Amino acid sequence: MKAVLVGLGNFGLGWYKRLRRHPGVQTVCVVEANVQLRETIDSETPFYLTLEEAIISECPDFVINVTPPHIHTTINEIAFSHGLPVLCEKPISNDITDAQYIVNQAELKNIPFMISENYRFFAPVLKAKELLDRGVIGHLSSVHIEFDRYHVVPVPYFGRLANGLLEDVTIHHFDMIRYFTGQEAVKVFAMNSNPPGSWTDTTTIHLSAWMELDGGTVVDYHGNMMAKGKLTEWYGDWRFEGAEGAIAITSNRVQLMKEGKADEVYTFDGVGNVLSIDEFLAALKEKREPRPSGREYLKSQSLVHAAAVSSRTGKMLSVEAALREVFLLQHES
């Protein structure tokens, strides 16, 4: 299959290299408005300044959208207008209304649209999901998540976000909550802040959140991009407590515990991860909905939106109430 990659900045070059060596991708062409970035790829790779030009000239089978979030909607609309499936980096859009719109467009036109939620595909995550689905710890009662990194983000769009950690990183973890549990949030309470000495004064990089899920599971989350102590993996440390045991994900290993003692430990050093492009291509071949589709991922992004509203208002609320606020603001304006 032929791919057109849109965007070479930040994550784009990594995507280019991944696509070039992927057995399911025969050829790759690139779209990038900054012509100077052409020097970062092989000279024989077709290079275009606009997606329209690339589509007309190359007739690709699908689009990989790795542009900055505020450009996602424009690129996705162009791809949809040509009937092309899209694998888009998260988020769908920085604006929840835009995100709803583009998901509706994909569904109206029956075009496969997937968000590249790579955290779902890490080996420890897949193993923990398997154990949870098998019910090895019984009814799930609580989930505790800790994310701690010291990470200065030089990308301009990050500093323009109202809540950088929540919108750019925690969205992965909130999506994982839904993925692991198969449940949706009923109540959400969150507090965004900046720790003393923060490396940014334009956005927030510390988050505490609590939520109740519709299956009765309670979740508490701690996130910090200013951490000076023990650092977690990017997907964080997780502890799942159930009626018959517990599961912990820490430092690239999964531990199953029964009666307070280790029952089994699974380690994943040197184990390769499934890639989101693998799932996308498999879904196209099998003519099924990719996981997560835009429709599915919109629920994770709506949960992030609810946490942002909760932090701003200082109130506990439901996802529906947070989305209703958007609807009312739109109609007032």
Rank of each mutant, 00 (worst) to 15 (best):
H139E: 14
F189Q: 10
R160D: 13
G215I: 13
F240S: 05
T181G: 03
G159T: 00
I205T: 04
Y235N: 05
L231S: 12
A185C: 05
N192E: 15
H222L: 13
A243C: 04
L231H: 12
P156M: 02
M211Q: 10
Q183N: 10
F147T: 01
R160F: 12
P154W: 07
V218H: 09
S198L: 00
F189M: 07
G197M: 05
Y179T: 14
H173P: 06
H151D: 10
T217N: 14
W238S: 11
G159W: 08
W199Q: 07
R178G: 08
L231A: 13
L140N: 13
T232N: 10
E233S: 15
E233F: 07
G197L: 03
D214Q: 11
E146M: 11
W238G: 03
D168Q: 13
I137N: 04
A162Q: 11
L166K: 06
S141A: 11
W238L: 07
D175T: 06
E241L: 07
M191G: 02
T204P: 00
I177V: 15
S198E: 00
F147K: 11
G135N: 03
E184I: 04
F174E: 01
L161M: 15
V188E: 01
D201N: 06
D168S: 13
A185N: 00
H151S: 05
S193D: 02
V155E: 15
D168V: 06
V218E: 14
V136P: 08
T203S: 11
D175H: 13
A162S: 10
Y235L: 01
F174A: 01
N224G: 02
W210V: 03
N163P: 00
G236Q: 07
W234G: 02
M225A: 06
A227E: 10
E167S: 15
V136Q: 08
H206T: 05
M211W: 05
G159Q: 00
L213D: 00
D220W: 14
Y150R: 03
M176N: 04
Y221H: 02
D148R: 14
E184T: 10
F174M: 10
V152M: 09
F174H: 04
R160A: 14
R178T: 07
R239K: 13
R160V: 03
I145R: 01
E146A: 09
V219W: 10
V169L: 14
Y157V: 08
D201L: 01
F158H: 04
E241P: 02
S141F: 03
E233C: 08
V186G: 00
G164Y: 09
L161K: 13
D175S: 15
M226L: 07
E212I: 09
G138Q: 02
L207D: 00
T200W: 05
